[in-house]
Amino acid sequence: MPPLATPVRTPVRPGTPTPRRRVRSGRGAAGRSRAERLAPYVLVAPAALIIGVFRLYPLALGVNFSFTGDGDRNGQAVGLDNYAALFEDPLFLASMRNVGLLVLLLPVAVLIPGLLATFIYLRVPGHRVYRSVYFFPAVLSPVIIGAIFNLLLAFDGPANALLGTVGLGPVDWLGDPDIAMFAVVGVHIWATFGMALVVFLAGFATLDASLIDAARVDGASLPRVVRHVIVPGLSRTIQFVVVTTMIGMLTSMFGLLYVMTGGGPEGSTYLPEYYIWFQQGQMGRPALASAASTVLFGVMLVVGLGQIAVLRRAGRED
């Protein structure tokens, strides 16, 4: 999770002359000023080179490859054929629909850690235990979590046995195309909400306790305290959690999908990331995978720009 970037501005008093030591040398003023002019570029160069060579160049290559063909047409320019194939492929369309589903499920993913953090903050009995217990899953790898839930959610597993004791029919958690995606997202939320919870708790630490006390003295009920005191006080934290949770859902569910469903049943749990891996590694169609990567890059760019906008606005409110 990237740290919350709050721009720290050092106040610069206007009119204060920057002390500059002038060293006299044999060289002329022109040479010195050129060195001075070049210095920032030289200093920035390593960072720029790393970004250019390891980020932008591969990105450009990937976009470029998305316009070439696979198999027999390896290396030939094929125009937009790959993109046409993508948007005709029911698997890719399903993966894009699932991205939409994730966006819809985002409020749930934020609400759960938010509510639990509120309870811990309000010191429900045993809150100290919960605070550490909730964080436990965050340290497990997705593969281990997936394996655990494969067992729990198996058709003849404990989850269905539990349902059976209360008289409910067995649910094919990972085998029913209408349920599987929700099961996987549920497990992902379970596995990652600890991190968001910690962020929320950090946000609560900055909350003015006297406001809550005042509201209580005035006779406000718990829901009203949450609605009118806690939520406004935490708006920045909530925004941050929303953005990071969204990015987490879009980019780090591969391990869970790979272990729990393998994209199935009926291709119902594909996400773009998984689709890219499948086309490149399993079907031997790297150019099509490049096209899918480019589309995913576009989606992430939109989400990323949204993130910057949200964080900027949050910074201004400060």
């Binding site: 932008l56 990105l59 450009a60 290559l61 976009v63 470029n64 490859f65 998305s66 316009f67 070439t68 063909g69 696979d70 390896n74 290396g75 030939q76 320019a77 094929v78 125009g79 031997g284 790297p286 150019a287 995978a289 490049s290």
Partner: peptide, 20 residues
């Protein structure tokens, strides 16, 4: 420009690497 530049390279090389 930096973002659009890749498009200028449109469709050269190959995703699976050169055949050699």
């Amino acid at each position: 420009t930096a973002l659009i530049a890749p498009l200028a390279l449109y469709g050269c090389g190959s995703a699976a690497g050169p055949e050699s």
